[in-house]
Design a protein around this nucleic acid. Sequence first.
DNA 1: CTGAAAGCGCTTACAG
DNA 2: CTGAAAGCGCTTACAG
Lengths: 336, 336
Amino acid sequence: MKRSSIKDIAKLAGVSVATVSYVLNRKEGQRISEETRKKIFEIAETINYTPNKIAKSLKTNKTKLLGLIVADISNEFYSLMARNLEDKALKLGYTLIIGSSDENAEKFKKLTELFSQQQVDGMIVAPVAGSEKTLENLMHIKYPVVTIDRYLKGVTVPGITINNQEIAENTTSLLLNKNFDKIIYIGYETELPHLLDRQHGFEKAVHSSKKTVEIRHILVGLENIAEEVHSQLENTLGKSPENTALYFSSNKLAVAGLSYLVKNNIKVPEQVSVIAFDETETYHLFPTEITYIQQPIEAMAEEAIKLLDGQINNYTATEKRVTLSAKLIAKASFNK
Amino acid sequence: MKRSSIKDIAKLAGVSVATVSYVLNRKEGQRISEETRKKIFEIAETINYTPNKIAKSLKTNKTKLLGLIVADISNEFYSLMARNLEDKALKLGYTLIIGSSDENAEKFKKLTELFSQQQVDGMIVAPVAGSEKTLENLMHIKYPVVTIDRYLKGVTVPGITINNQEIAENTTSLLLNKNFDKIIYIGYETELPHLLDRQHGFEKAVHSSKKTVEIRHILVGLENIAEEVHSQLENTLGKSPENTALYFSSNKLAVAGLSYLVKNNIKVPEQVSVIAFDETETYHLFPTEITYIQQPIEAMAEEAIKLLDGQINNYTATEKRVTLSAKLIAKASFNK
DNA sequence: CTGAAAGCGCTTACAG
DNA sequence: CTGAAAGCGCTTACAG
């Protein structure tokens, strides 16, 4: 698999490698005769020349590679995000190299090191709990980084988030207005700020409301989500609830909860109303259409790439955080 | 973001760059005094040296990058595959760069070119219809490639598939034995061989059976799957079917079909039995557990990486195809 | 035990 | 209009 190089073309064309380089890169500054230009293109074509970007990278210090670190690429939210990022990146000539951190700060760090050694031009990361130091180090050496989805307290990395607290507060207020006897918040036991924001938004709405309504929380770990949600819903919700609302703070939690409802033949919205964060195709198999909070994934991807590309090209030490608005998609699951 | 290089270390340590390189790479052949060795490690540590793999790649002609081309990384099957490939690749020191072809032969070709320019050591691809030529070219220049999931007629690229036809035939036989009045095969209108294999397996079982049963086919395009499946099921299955079986040749089709059943309150397995190719979390929201054909994704990923790594390191022009066995996971949706 | 040197495939300021 | 040359950050056969 010996590839042909610029040198081969130069030899065949009887010109210098410099000339070949100028022609192939269509540089304007240098005027090359139409004749040699044509000859060079022809030869390149016939010997099937493809440029070695590695060599170019070494010289230009740009690889056109972007590192993407998510918690798990097989997670629906992240794979959809990855897809959107891929498209936006490609438009600017970047390709994505990916890694999954598994919510492990050590692995997260390892991935940033690996990517940095591969000389990626920048990184798009969903940081995990405990990776503050790693992000600080990257910022310190001015490595272009943007965070997506998540952020961490105490480190100011440019990044994209949505208005988690606000949208949670607003949607919770809607629930409160409907006079349920009981509202159950289903969330994660976590330190991740963006998830806590959702919880705080919920609580803020509850506290500023004058309604008397029983509030319950179900908080589960990241493992065995389905089992935990099922057993806790069994305790908190029971088998034949009435006039109750469930507020799920992620699509995974929602799917776990909905499967409990299906198994126990609990009717939505007759017995229980449902709101969930994030969409998923899975909702389509539920008998009632689910009301959910939709994140603007495409816009998030676009902004992330834009922000990163800006850093890469200007070295402006942007401390810019972009907050986009999520949107409530109201469906039947929430019509009392 | 000026990084320190081997040269900086050499200068600070008062040795040559060669010596630094030997020490950092722990080469055995060269014996370096414990003293300079220690000094070099210390200096590397304090100036926060990280190797530039791009430079190394240029010299060694190995990037430790693998290109992955799937139809769409946001597709559940492919994102799960990507995750498994990522893990297996990492064990051998490779990282993955990804691209989605969108079933477009031109884009597929572009991606292979892009990846080849990035000097990936090899590619793992799910080829699209019409990309025979592209694959042949890669084979011709001996670029290490393996196919996953799919394969193409007429080009012998090493790759991993499952026993699509066989498992389809076997599972269809099970259906036939249950004496349904009607069996409906739901598949794609496609030229992709691995999907046709599923269809052929189905048909083979039907033809070699002595039962008299009404057989119907629903074939849909890749766009608007849900709508097409719904409208065709409405025609073929109706609103209150009896003693009918549905055979879905992918999880996407199954989800579309199941949502039709939910919407029309058709009972599984009382009225209709269901078998589907591939699993998905989505099945969990269906009232009845779904019987499905499980692909051994982890093993497929492992074999793919192994096969590719073999090609990369030996340049053995392997024409090896690996066929792994899928497995029927029998659940209630298929208990008459 | 260590270093000088060539070279991987490019780019680009400079000279002519 | 074109070329000689330096250099990006490494590796590695060779010499001493």
